[in-house]
Design a protein around this nucleic acid. Sequence first.
DNA 1: CTCTGTGCAAAGGATTTGCACTACG
DNA 2: CGTAGTGCAAATCCTTTGCACAGAG
Lengths: 150, 150
Amino acid sequence: MKNQVKYLTDVLEAKGYRLTIARQVIAETLVDSGSHCSADELVDLVHKSAPGIGRMTVYRTLELFCHLGLARPIYQGTGAAHYVLMERGHHHHLVCSACGRFIEFDDCVLEKITEELISERFNFAVEGHLLELFGRCQQCQEQYNSSERL
Amino acid sequence: MKNQVKYLTDVLEAKGYRLTIARQVIAETLVDSGSHCSADELVDLVHKSAPGIGRMTVYRTLELFCHLGLARPIYQGTGAAHYVLMERGHHHHLVCSACGRFIEFDDCVLEKITEELISERFNFAVEGHLLELFGRCQQCQEQYNSSERL
DNA sequence: CTCTGTGCAAAGGATTTGCACTACG
DNA sequence: CGTAGTGCAAATCCTTTGCACAGAG
């Protein structure tokens, strides 16, 4: 987890971006949050350890992370976008279509093969991927039928 | 492609939603667009064939499609969310991190296996997935080095 | 006929500028 | 020291309500 933060800051420096207090705090907070939260939640969390850091800085840092392939915005259809960290370029999670719960997992063997195939077929230099699986989590399979209306 | 539209409208009816002109036009337009556009673009496209259909109806229909697992919003980090159709619950594309170009593809063999593994391990009823691969498309590999700044 | 779906306009949020100030390297 | 990064507030843009009307079944 500490390593994860170091990786983020190392990439920043390697690309010639300045390693500021704000960016460090934001990186730490994002990792601590479980690598998954909205910009707004992140602003609140950051304020707990460093009240001086502005909302804008959080937005801009997230944008920077995305630009560098370190994070990715995902949109849940309502409200604000969420940001997920892409550890070593990868992120996987399950999204429950009933309760919206996220279940993070880290299993990359099959996707590796996919990447190689794609890389060849489309002449596309794959740098990472996001795999989202949609369905019903255990609780929601028990609680609901599949027919609740919008 | 025609089948794709029929599938969408069939699901609507099967779930007890009314099959209105507006929904039909929106489904057709979304499929014609290549199953991938922003709400705003879709409003404009829909207006070309049916000027009477309001912006709200497009938003609400997209929300409905997402609720039914027929579409998925994706967020590119700037501006409006894009919506992609999930054909038979699946969608795959490549995103170029330099030019933002999308390359759609349809290759599902490996993911099938992944779904089964996940399903067992997490007791999660997988209904579909979205796989996004990030990297450089052919043109961008030729044109840029990997170090352009934000 | 009844209830779901639609359209409009206004409200509500999230995200993005513009610009002076701060601080990393 | 110079430039990249920051913070604030105002502006912008996307998306969502509220409510009366229209149309599908």
